[in-house]
Nucleic acid binder design. Structure first.
Lengths: 347, 347
DNA sequence: TTTCGGTATGAAAACGTTTACATTCGACTG
DNA sequence: CAGTCGAATGTAAACGTTTTCATACCGAAA
């Protein structure tokens, strides 16, 4: 293995000069620098990250701790984080697919001491968990978490606002007999989406709403669809808390020969790529997933640069209603931005 | 920041004993070990990875260098790598979304010296590129690459075999007038898929085949579909080199009111999740993407454990034909495994 | 009691890099 | 020409950990 000493010998300078020539530009003769660079290239020298980190007290790496995520969401999130990290010259350490709290804790431990900061998204994380497993000195940002520790930094999706906007859309289309297929009870985001729907309807006259339990799976959406078919009166619009359930519901309606949106309009949440390929294409709420990753990394960087100043508070990312044929638009699909597309940080 | 010295002081032992108690189990009194563990927990001690790596000459991390990948493929690949890495106690450093060769080179450089091995998938990588940018001592495995340096390790998808199996299926369904929508010319996998189709047909009597150029995009599939509609005679089956083009083609056929598979059968390649939601659901070739990541990591580990023995050669992952309604199966979708589902390593 | 052997622990070197401090050298000022 | 200053370079300490080697201890064998 070739070290900085070998380069120094080859270039006939000291190791200090090699280090200076290769890193900072402080006071090195152009001639010397060139000689060092040639020597390094000739020997194919690669500085050892560990040695460098040891003395600089920086790893130039951030860790992302993620749950067992479904396809498109995961890749978009990583893409957002990765691009932002590269722009900052940071490396990205990923650890995903954590089934339970123990696995998450293990992964969390293993990452500390290897990174300068952590991005955390996990259903298993709560205040006690973090206090127990996260060293106080490690900067961290939580993504889309239920927990709200006022001393911590968060980046979240505006689930409430998205559901609110979609509900307004349904009402604007003239629907008055609504059904809501909700996500898994314990999920924070699922609760927020329901709340957005429910509170928008609160106090409206002449509007009926019913709720069906789902678990974000296509299967549960299908069951909900079946249940709705046998109800009377049937709703004239169904809002599913995510696209997969909307797709399941659509299958049930299609099988029964119910026209969508003719007899029953349908809307989802997430705007997963499949949504626009459904028959009819699905009206849904678009979530800027890569933006979530991007924003989280930026907040983390802020925290890393000023570790003394606590960068607490929540950054919320807006959603937008995407109107397609399944509800509110007969042929062409149009995106309607319901709120300004920007980051706004509370606190 | 709390170091091993602090723990040593707290536990009233030497740093050597702390290290031994916390890592290997060689000759430490149960009593001492307990005292050390308590002290470490009390102080929330986390060993510094850099210091450890410096002396052990191991980072316990592998890097994955990936191109700008589309959704589901990317997440499945990472999932496969991540799971295998965790099972081995390895960390995963990801660097994706590389537009050009320069970016790839930069990322490649930055990763060396931080990882014990590299997983590389990139259209920009060829023999010269690697010789120039990859230090000889770094173990590396190439995924699904065009290049075939006999001294290097590869993991690849059996594009040829998959296309062959699908072509056989089309013939078995009675189709004799075939069209093939090919992928981007420079892509290795696209060429292999075409070769699988072409060579299967070679020498068959009474079978006609024509080729249309595509670029893996939905749009290019749509154009190809339009072109086929105005051709005469129309083909009775179309095989697209990937699912996205098949989907585009399907749109063109649907718009023209051509029944699929009644008038024209259709098949794709990849089995992306959308495939089964199409109308009709798409017959396609399933690629075990997470297996690709898993296999690549295992080969990398082998190389890391025995750096002296060159672990060259290609590991090929089989594909399977998934028969759905768009070709060969009228209602229910069935998966037919065309080759045994196992890894086999040549060389 | 002495000696031997083995086990638990401690002292200190080593890993490769950055950086504070020291040194050299040349140019410019007085 | 002596003195001063600044730029370029070198020397060596420091980072936190593992690990080799040495040491102390204890029980068993002689």
């Amino acid at each position: 293995m070739v070290t900085i000493k070998d380069v120094a010998r080859e270039a006939k300078v000291s190791v200090a000069t090699v280090s200076r020539a290769l890193n900072g530009s402080t006071s090195v003769t152009p001639d010397t620098r060139a000689r060092v660079e040639r020597a390094a290239a000739r020997l194919r020298y690669v500085p050892l990250g560990a040695a460098r980190s040891l003395v600089t007290r920086r790893t130039q790496a951030v860790g992302a701790l993620l749950p067992d995520l479904f396809g498109e969401f995961f890749s978009e999130l990583i893409r957002g984080i990765d691009l932002a990290a590269r722009a900052r010259g940071l490396h990205l350490l990923v650890s995903s697919t954590h089934g339970d709290a123990d696995e998450t804790a293990t992964a969390l431990h293993a990452m500390q001491g290897r990174v300068d900061g952590l991005l955390i998204m996990s259903p298993h994380v709560d205040a006690g968990f973090l206090r127990k497993h996260l060293a106080g000195s490690v900067p961290a940002v939580l993504m889309d978490a239920a927990l709200r520790d006022p001393r911590r930094a968060y980046v979240a999706i505006d689930n409430y606002g998205g559901a609110h906007a979609m509900t307004e859309h349904l009402l604007a289309c003239g629907h008055r007999n609504l059904a809501f297929i909700q996500g898994p009870k314990p999920n924070h985001d699922a609760r927020e989406r329901r709340r957005g729907f429910e509170e928008t309807l609160a106090g409206r006259r002449g509007v009926a709403a019913r709720f069906l339990q789902g678990d974000y799976s296509e299967e549960s959406g299908y069951r909900a669809g079946k249940a709705l078919l046998s109800a009377s009166p049937r709703p004239d619009a169904v809002f599913a808390a995510n696209d997969m359930m909307a797709i399941g519901c659509l299958s049930a309606l299609n099988e029964a020969g119910v026209r969508v949106p003719g007899e029953i309009a349908l809307a989802g949440f997430d705007d997963i790529p499949i949504a626009r390929y459904m028959h009819p294409p699905l009206t849904t709420v678009r979530v800027q997933i890569s933006e979530l990753g991007h924003a989280a990394l930026e907040r983390l960087v802020a925290q890393m640069q000023a570790p003394d100043i606590p960068q607490a508070g929540v950054t919320t990312l807006d959603c937008e209603v995407v109107v397609r044929a399944s509800c509110g638009s007969s042929t062409r699909s149009t995106a309607r931005r319901t709120k300004r597309q920007e980051l706004h940080t509370h606190n």
